[in-house]
Design a protein around this nucleic acid. Structure first.
Lengths: 170, 170
DNA sequence: AAAATATATGTTATATTATAACATAACAAA
DNA sequence: TTTGTTATGTTATAATATAACATATATTTT
């Protein structure tokens, strides 16, 4: 068993969230630069709003905020920015919540397993190679070849369950 | 590694689908009887429509059919029946497709891993204990306790990939 | 069997999530 | 600097889902 690659851990309530957002935004800038794609003001702002917390945000909640900032904002304004950010791996959609979370490791081809706390609403992201391999093996037993997997695990995080609160969070 | 519990396998194109539907419907009847819940005509019909193929069906596609059969059919007609059938484990929602598939093993508490072929559209369902355990272990490493997991794997089934076509399907 | 209760369905309205299509603007390349 | 490309503005509408209350049907109690 290999060590889990934790992309976005659960954070303590006391963490300085601005650092999460700042870091993600600057990784995004660099990544867009090196890929030759444009992180426009709008896209950057949408990414910032996605990063306003570790809880997934809804497209129309983003829109409500944008409408106070840019006249002419409409659903396509948001959905197009989200589409770009998803294509670049900077945002992931949580299918079971119709909501979006930021990703600080914008590789095009990593997989994700999301842990969603139904108490605090926070989402953690990992890409665990053992999980990927096991699912791939089991699928292969049925003759199935995997292109993409959606794994969204609901439960309760350490902080909310009151255990491990000091040692399992960053 | 334990053997995968295949709940709904991929089927050959030539399979007699009526048998799949008939079997699921009669299991549903028996299960509802033994649970003391009512598989009404409407619910039975909706379940039958869900079982009209192994491709997931959309709520409004069900509605379109119902409208030709019962005057007064409306979205709640379908969504309420689907909710009942999901609660009873006879239907699962595929979150990433906003669609519904039948389940022939209506336990209240089994988990599911769905394999979704993007070529033929068919969905297979398994409940593999190794996958559940591995994900639970990895989540526990982060202090997370799982209530429910959503696993939807996209790819290509054996028949569509042209391999194993005779030996991996039922 | 009749009344009371609980459950299921009918009905209207609306909320939520997302995309199509075409116009204009901003940027990049030639 | 004009040309092409990419991004955004704008209007409209499609697709998915739920709220709220009325009526009907089934079940239980009297």
């Amino acid at each position: 068993m290999r060590k889990t690659n934790v992309i976005t851990p659960f954070k303590k309530l006391s963490h300085v969230h601005q650092q999460c957002a700042d870091s993600a935004l600057s990784v995004a800038e660099e990544t867009c630069n090196s890929r030759g794609v444009r992180l426009t003001k709008l896209r950057r702002r949408v990414l910032e709003l996605v990063w306003s917390s570790h809880e997934p945000i809804k497209a129309y909640d983003i829109l409500d905020i944008l409408r106070n900032e840019r006249s002419g904002s409409a659903p396509p304004t948001v959905y197009r920015a989200l589409e770009f950010l998803q294509d670049e791996g900077m945002v992931h959609k949580i299918e079971s919540l119709n909501s979006y979370v930021g990703c600080g490791a914008p590789a095009h081809n990593h997989a994700s397993q999301f842990l969603i706390c139904h108490s605090c609403g926070a989402v953690a992201e990992m890409d665990d190679i053992d999980i990927r391999n096991l699912i791939a093996d089991k699928a292969a037993d049925m003759g199935f070849k995997i292109d993409k997997e959606i794994i969204e695990v609901k439960g309760i995080c350490s902080q909310c369950s009151g255990e491990y609160s000091s040692d399992k969070k960053c």
